[in-house]
């Protein structure tokens, strides 16, 4: 697993121009997998950067217990594109196509923990787009919201705001 991920990382960091690897930062995911990234990438992640700043750059291995080795490569990929100024609509569309609803949420939490503003804004919009035009039941499932209305209350509410409940897309079942 570790081998596989680090080879993936090498291919990701080809675009880096700085060959001096002395200053690379090691990010350790919650499942103990090490990702080596350039310091410029770390700068995009405010949480990581402030950790580096606090220790005057002496510590270059940073544990990220809340982030899995599944999400971290996505975060790094996005940050790399962001630094290179290559975040386009096409890239974003391609980026989220790979992710199911559950993964988008996990990635959101990872971005939230690392405090990457651009990625947070982007993922918020992705989630908003994914729940738009969906049924109330779908949105409840998406966010794990429990329905505490009585059937009568809900029926009354749906009648009052009937105009919003028309034209709902069928729920897609890509959730696990």
């Amino acid at each position: 697993m570790a081998e596989e991920v680090s080879s993936q990382m090498n291919s990701l960091s080809i675009s880096e121009t700085n060959p001096s690897s002395s200053a690379t930062i090691s990010l350790v995911s919650g499942d103990d997998i090490v990702f080596k990234v350039e310091p410029t990438i770390a700068k995009e992640m405010e949480t990581v950067q402030s950790f580096i700043d606090e220790t005057d750059g002496k510590i270059t291995t940073i544990p990220l217990p809340n982030i899995s080795s599944h999400d971290l490569p996505y975060v790094i990929e996005y940050c790399e594109k962001s630094i290179a100024g290559k975040i386009t609509k096409e890239f974003e569309a391609e980026f989220v196509k790979k992710l199911n609803n559950e993964e988008v949420k996990e990635l959101f939490l990872a971005a939230n923990y690392l405090n990457i503003k651009k990625l947070l804004d982007f993922l918020s919009q992705v989630i908003a787009d994914r729940i738009a035009n969906k049924s109330v039941e779908y949105v409840r499932r998406y966010f794990g919201i429990e329905n505490d209305f009585t059937p009568e209350e809900e029926a009354k509410l749906r009648e009052e705001l009937a105009w919003t409940f028309t034209g709902v897309d069928p729920d897609d079942e890509d959730e696990n």
Binding site: I131, A132, N133, V136, V139, R140, F143, I145, E146, N147, D148, F149, E154, L157, R158, L161, W163, T164, F165
Partner: peptide, 13 residues
Amino acid sequence: KNLVKTSALSKQW
């Protein structure tokens, strides 16, 4: 339209 619909999620919303 989608925002108003969230009122049917639960009492909290």
